[in-house]
Design a protein around this nucleic acid. Structure first.
Lengths: 201, 201
DNA sequence: CCAAACTAAGCGTGCGCTTAGTTTGCGTGC
DNA sequence: GCACGCAAACTAAGCGCACGCTTAGTTTGG
């Protein structure tokens, strides 16, 4: 009796993940409604029916991708904030990792940010709750910076919205072969962020 | 002989536009592939077949919406730049009008920016050419500002990309009922833009 | 009167998903 | 160390439906 998790065969998890990766790539390229379950199965090297061995529905596949991505993003952000007590350092860490993540993981980030409308009502509500938390974390950094005098901005809420927006949109325009690496973007976006919030130097 | 344009009956143009508006609203909400031609016809108060009286295909409808929007955006940007010779003034005017436009016309702007993948190869190429021109116009403003000493930024190309990105993403997050009007966003985004490029005060 | 505007009906196709199986490979008894 | 039982992994076939679009007409209005 080693618990239920030990029951699944090794091969099943690998195939499950292969299907999720194939689905994420397809959703990123052609959108949820532009992708068929046959497309996903073929990309994973399986028959159309195999999708339903591992996942309840096409929407559930999207939900899993979306949920994983949102949880990872929130953890990334909290990890960055926890790295220091200084609001300026927190802003640098948050924007750097957030922007770099949206470049590096631009495929799944596009699904996460642009396919929300294809989620079921319940799944959307679940994901929106995480998004609100992500927004609140970033807002907190900006507001603490303003309160401590480290930042100077007339509208901290709008500044936080713009910072989040700037990071998310990286997933839309970033292409691997172009002039900047994810880390370049992270570093330079952190500089832009300091300017946007009026960080004292 | 007053030309071919005078041949169409008044009612036809109105219905044509009504179909385009219905299509733009539907594409913005559910995406191109998530919208059926029956949806579009019903939203315009017509039978499914009526779509094909006025438009060759669903893709052509998207192409018209996309083309109109891109041309309008380019004109908006050129008009803003032509309003003054001063790079700082040009940046303020461009960012203000670009951001406000993406808030005000967020429905069609979402279609324009997030449904590119659904265009045919030829239509996509046509639209991407306009997008390159829009990027070049904004880049020009930033580069002239740096050259004249009005702006101070280590990477003008990335700064221009970020400014464009910030404006476009307004269409994703903006909702009418929220705390800022399109003009509020335009004004405050212009301030952020000046900070981002290191405008001298 | 007659072309333009519009519709009822429906064609062929590809969709999400299910059913009814076959194949695979690990755990067990000997 | 090997045959075997049997659940898990996977597939071939196909169901019912909604899709984009067409055809063959009817209605409308200058």
């Amino acid at each position: 009796m080693t618990g239920t998790a030990a029951r699944t065969r090794p091969h099943a998890d690998e195939t499950r993940n292969r299907l999720m990766d194939a689905a994420a790539a397809a959703f990123a390229e052609r959108g949820f409604h532009g992708t068929s379950t046959r497309d996903i199965a073929a990309a994973a090297g399986l028959s159309p029916a195999a999708v339903y061995v591992h996942h309840r529905s096409k929407e559930e596949l999207l939900h899993q991708i979306s949920l994983r991505g949102h949880v990872a993003t929130l953890e990334l952000m909290r990890h960055a904030i926890a790295s220091t007590d200084d609001p300026t350092g927190q802003l640098i860490a948050v924007v750097r990792s957030f922007a770099a993540y949206h470049a590096r993981a631009n495929t799944s980030a596009r699904v996460i940010n642009y396919e929300l409308a294809a989620l079921s009502e319940d799944h959307l509500a679940e994901v929106l709750e995480i998004r609100r938390t992500i927004t609140a974390e970033l807002r907190g950094v900006v507001e603490r910076g303003v309160a401590s005098g480290a930042f100077d901005t007339a509208n901290p809420r709008l500044a936080a919205t713009a910072l989040l927006s700037l990071g998310i949109d990286v997933a839309r325009w970033y292409r691997e072969e172009r002039e900047w690496s994810p880390d370049d973007i992270g570093t330079q976006y952190a500089d832009l962020a300091l300017r946007m919030v009026g960080a004292q130097r």
